[in-house]
Simulated scan of single mutants.
Amino acid sequence: MIKYVVAGMMVLGLASLAQANEGGACAKDRETLCAGVEHGGGKIAKCMKENQDKLSSECKAHMEKAKEAMKDMKEACHDDVEKFCGDVKPGKGRIMKCMKEHKEELSAACKEEIASAKEMRKKRK
């Protein structure tokens, strides 16, 4: 069960990284390849993944960097997710909400990875 929870957390993280409001390494690719796709529910991230062979090299590099950041976050936060949110049903952002509710109690390593991911998102905009 916890593997699915952590996987869900990663998917949510990648989806948010793939959906910058404006600008960023993948903005043109999103506009071109996913123009008609409705926002929400990871639909943009899914579209980007389905079109990954058509992405610009800049966007591919950014997505690879984001994927690596999510892997690091998964590793750093695994025990925290299990400890604080192991009984939370995955989906609709429930795991992320749970993690936010426990942000003061998270391990230092998890907090650091979350901060790094936030910093990466800021740089995209």
Results as ranks from 00 to 15, higher is better:
residue 114 I to V: 13
residue 54 K to A: 15
residue 105 E to F: 00
residue 53 D to F: 12
residue 108 A to N: 01
residue 110 C to N: 00
residue 97 K to R: 09
residue 55 L to R: 00
residue 88 V to D: 05
residue 88 V to M: 03
residue 72 D to A: 11
residue 66 A to W: 04
residue 106 L to H: 00
residue 77 C to W: 06
residue 78 H to P: 10
residue 37 V to N: 04
residue 70 M to S: 13
residue 76 A to D: 01
residue 68 E to R: 13
residue 42 G to F: 09
residue 100 K to C: 05
residue 91 G to P: 00
residue 80 D to H: 02
residue 66 A to P: 15
residue 91 G to A: 14
residue 58 E to C: 09
residue 115 A to C: 02
residue 103 K to W: 02
residue 109 A to W: 01
residue 84 F to W: 09
residue 39 H to A: 15
residue 99 M to L: 07
residue 31 E to A: 09
residue 89 K to C: 03
residue 115 A to L: 03
residue 105 E to I: 05
residue 30 R to D: 06
residue 41 G to T: 07
residue 78 H to T: 15
residue 40 G to N: 07
residue 52 Q to I: 12
residue 81 V to Y: 05
residue 61 A to F: 04
residue 118 K to G: 06
residue 101 E to S: 08
residue 80 D to K: 01
residue 106 L to Q: 00
residue 92 K to V: 11
residue 111 K to I: 13
residue 73 M to T: 15
residue 63 M to D: 10
residue 94 R to Y: 09
residue 118 K to V: 07
residue 53 D to G: 13
residue 62 H to D: 12
residue 69 A to L: 12
residue 113 E to T: 12
residue 111 K to W: 06
residue 84 F to D: 13
residue 37 V to M: 07
residue 107 S to D: 02
residue 47 C to F: 05
residue 48 M to I: 14
residue 111 K to E: 05
residue 65 K to R: 13
residue 110 C to H: 00
residue 98 C to H: 08
residue 98 C to L: 05
residue 46 K to R: 14
residue 91 G to L: 14
residue 52 Q to C: 13
residue 72 D to N: 15
residue 121 R to G: 06
residue 82 E to C: 06
residue 67 K to Y: 03
residue 61 A to R: 05
residue 95 I to Y: 05
residue 102 H to A: 05
residue 122 K to H: 08
residue 76 A to G: 01
residue 71 K to G: 15
residue 81 V to N: 04
residue 62 H to N: 13
residue 41 G to H: 09
residue 45 A to Y: 11
residue 90 P to G: 02
residue 51 N to R: 01
residue 115 A to R: 04
residue 111 K to G: 14
residue 74 K to E: 14
residue 102 H to T: 08
residue 74 K to G: 15
residue 107 S to G: 12
residue 44 I to P: 04
residue 73 M to A: 14
residue 98 C to F: 08
residue 49 K to R: 11
residue 33 L to R: 03
residue 45 A to I: 07
